[in-house]
């Protein structure tokens, strides 16, 4: 089964707690929402606690505090990091011009990395692969053409605020319907993933907890 619990006393208690919380969550489907609300609080509290623990043990201590303590002048960029973190943490009491700096740096850096990576790692290689298909037959070419047409129609579907002719309006409508079809297909995959999660929980109750399944 899940195998995330061992055989020791602590693990047995863990299995029981996990089973009871699973029953509480499943019970919410039958209308029992109060205990389910407590289980949500438990999950949020555990997640926050784990996040804080990981942030302190694996990020702040080894990557910020220890290098600064070992050699305060050796890594000046870390002092800049400390200033940005302090500005973000003291946001409620500092002027907006100051608190906007860490947010801007974070968003700008994220956008720069994401955009450059998308162009170099996805857009150009995917365009290349779509244009030059080694050994691709008529079927592969047809799939490529259909893909290009669908992509174009969906992109046209996003065009807003410009004067449109009849053809462009029709293409945009078709593009929006294709987008909905695509999202629907994606939803199908999501249903499968979530269904397997539900089955895994049922398997956990029947196997790990009740021992009905070897």
């Amino acid at each position: 089964m899940s195998g995330l619990f061992g055989d020791g006393p602590a693990e047995v208690v863990g299995t029981w707690v996990a089973a009871l919380v699973t029953l509480v969550v499943l019970g919410s489907m039958l209308g029992e929402r109060r205990v389910f609300g407590w289980s949500q609080h438990l999950l949020a509290g555990l997640a926050t606690g784990f996040l804080a623990l990981v942030a302190i043990r694996e990020v702040i201590a080894p990557r910020l505090v220890e290098p600064l303590a070992a050699d305060p002048g050796g890594r000046p960029e870390l002092w800049g990091g400390v200033a940005l973190v302090a500005a973000a943490a003291a946001a409620p009491w500092l002027p907006r011009r100051i608190t906007a700096v860490p947010t801007s740096v974070a968003i700008g850096a994220l956008a720069a990395f994401a955009l450059a990576g998308a162009v170099v790692g996805t857009l150009l290689p995917q365009l290349g692969a779509a244009i030059a298909r080694p050994g691709g037959g008529l079927g592969a070419t047809a799939v490529g053409v259909i893909g290009a047409v669908v992509t174009g129609l969906v992109l046209i579907g996003f065009v807003h605020g410009v004067p449109r002719g009849r053809i462009l309006t029709s293409a945009a409508a078709v593009g929006r319907w294709l987008l909905i079809v695509g999202i629907g297909a994606w939803l199908g995959y999501l249903v499968l993933s979530r269904l397997i999660l539900l089955l895994d929980r049922i398997g956990f109750l029947l196997g790990d907890w009740l021992g009905l399944v070897p």
């Binding site: 499943l26 489907m29 039958l30 089955l199 398997g203 029947l206 399944v213």
Partner: peptide, 14 residues
């Protein structure tokens, strides 16, 4: 309905 579904899925699992 959802409770029934869980029971049916549990039975199918066994």
């Amino acid at each position: 309905g959802p409770g029934l579904l869980v029971v049916v899925l549990g039975a199918a699992w066994l």
